[in-house]
Structure formats: structure tokens, C-alpha cells
């Protein structure tokens, strides 16, 4: 009888251990992280075709804003967890106030649960990925498009729009700024406490302030003199690429 009891206890213990092991599946160790990017101008949500007053006095709207982000990591004291290799943020479908408030949402599944202290984002295409070409990817991959042969590089940021230099309503000056090459790549480190919970959709709100890309410390991009640039003029290219990192911030921080 005693032998039977011991065997029963061992069996029950084994079942208990086995069932507890089953709970530790991947799903329970990971959660979904949504990076929600809101495009703003001076902190106010901005949608395509929405007029804003530019620093020069011009009235401007943009009709295309795209940004590659790459090599996205969550950081804590012991590790840097890679969570996304590359993504193309496309705001061209954001055409009204409602969607402007929501912005563009990038869902990243299977992010390991835990407490993180920072989010690292590569703005643009990392040099490693920028050495590849669209031929290397399947048709729907973000790197299957948006490549500029002349640079041997992806176009990491696209700002296109139209302006009325007089501040009026005739927006017939076309603005085109395409930023690319390895020099356009930068990394930002956004510090905060990020808790990724198991099985949950964890959301981090981020803001991309176009005003901070086009203006800095009392200076602004001279859109009248340079309505177009494809990373060829240093005074435009450097201005835009160097401003970009400070334009991407955690929302409500």
C-alpha cells in the first residue's frame, strides 16, 4: 500500500511538472508589440493634403510621407532584443483627421515578454540591408521596392507635397525630397519603461514631427530655392538627415 502511495505521488508530481512545462509555450513567453507612429506638424496630427503654415510664410501640404525604419531593438540591462529587421512606414493613406490621430501602426508579433528600458530604432535602411537590392526579396517585402539605382541605395525617406509661397491657396510649387544612401541612416535610443506582457497587444506611441525635420533652431529648409532634392545638395540632404533623429520621439513624453 505504501509503495502504491509513493508511486501515485511520483506520478502526480510528474503530471504536474509536465503540465507546468506545457504552459511555458512560446505564446506565453511573447506578446505582440504595436509601434504606432503619428505624423505631426508642430505636435499636431497631420494628414495628407492638410495645409499648414510653413516657417517662410508659405502654405504647404504634403501628399506623400514615407520612412524606412530598420534594426529595431528593445533594450534592457542584460540584452538587446532585435524585434524588427525593416519596415516601410507609409502615411499616404492618412487623409483625414481621424486617421491622422491614429497614424500608422506597425505590429510586431512574438516579442519576448519582460521589462525593457529603451527602444532603439534605425531611421532609414541599415547599411547591411542597404547593400541588398530588390531582387533579394519576395514581392511584398518592403525592400522589394523604393530603390534608387543612381545611389545604389534605398530611398529611406520621402517627403513630397506642394506649396503656395505667398501663403495663399494655389499650391502649384511641387516639393520633392528623397533622402537615401548610407549617410542618411541614423539610430535613436528612446528611453522609458516598456513592459511587454504575455499574450497582450502592447502599444508604444511614437511621433514624427515634420516641423522638426524641416526647421531647426530658427532655420528652415528654403523650399523656394530648393523645391526638390534627391540627396544631391548637401545643404538640403544634410539638413533633412540630421534633423530627422530629433523629430522621432515617444508620444506624450
Amino acid at each position: 500500500m505504501k509503495k502504491f502511495t509513493i508511486l501515485t505521488i511520483i506520478l502526480l508530481a510528474f503530471i504536474g511538472i509536465a503540465s507546468s512545462c506545457e504552459k511555458n509555450t512560446d505564446d506565453n513567453e511573447t506578446g505582440t508589440l504595436s509601434l504606432q507612429f503619428q505624423l505631426t506638424y508642430g505636435g499636431e496630427p497631420l494628414h495628407m493634403f492638410e495645409r499648414f503654415n510653413y516657417a517662410s510664410g508659405a502654405s504647404v501640404f504634403i501628399d506623400r510621407f514615407n520612412l524606412f525604419i530598420s534594426d529595431v531593438k528593445l533594450v534592457n540591462s542584460t540584452t538587446k532584443q532585435s524585434i524588427k529587421d525593416v519596415a516601410w512606414l507609409d502615411f499616404s493613406g492618412i487623409q483625414d483627421k481621424t486617421t491622422a490621430k491614429t497614424g500608422v501602426r506597425l505590429e510586431i508579433p512574438k516579442v519576448p515578454v519582460g521589462q525593457y528600458s529603451a527602444l532603439e530604432i534605425g531611421l532609414g535602411v541599415s547599411p547591411e540591408l542597404n547593400a541588398t537590392t530588390p531582387s533579394n526579396y519576395s514581392a511584398s517585402h518592403p525592400l522589394a521596392n523604393n530603390y534608387w539605382e543612381q545611389w545604389n541605395s534605398y530611398i529611406s525617406m520621402v517627403i513630397e507635397g506642394k506649396a503656395d509661397l505667398t501663403g495663399g491657396t494655389t499650391h502649384n510649387l511641387i516639393l520633392t525630397y528623397h533622402v537615401g544612401t548610407n549617410d542618411a541612416y541614423s539610430r535613436i535610443n528612446l528611453e522609458d519603461n516598456f513592459l511587454i506582457k504575455s499574450g497582450k497587444n502592447n502599444v508604444i506611441l511614437l511621433e514624427i514631427d515634420l516641423k522638426k525635420i524641416l526647421t531647426k533652431e530658427g532655420q528652415h529648409l528654403d523650399i523656394e530655392r530648393f523645391p526638390r532634392d534627391h540627396s544631391t545638395r548637401p545643404e538640403v540632404f544634410d539638413f533633412l538627415r540630421l534633423n530627422l533623429p530629433s523629430a522621432v520621439v515617444l508620444k506624450n513624453k
Binding site: P134, S135, N145, N146, Y147, W148
Partner: peptide, 14 residues
């Protein structure tokens, strides 16, 4: 041309 008709497919599918 290659702003829109780019890559090996000669289109950006946009």
C-alpha cells in the same frame, strides 16, 4: 522614369 518604374519589375506597384 525610375522613380515609379523601378526595381527588377520596372514598377513600384504603387
Amino acid at each position: 522614369c525610375s522613380h515609379c518604374h523601378n526595381g527588377p519589375l520596372f514598377t513600384d506597384n504603387a
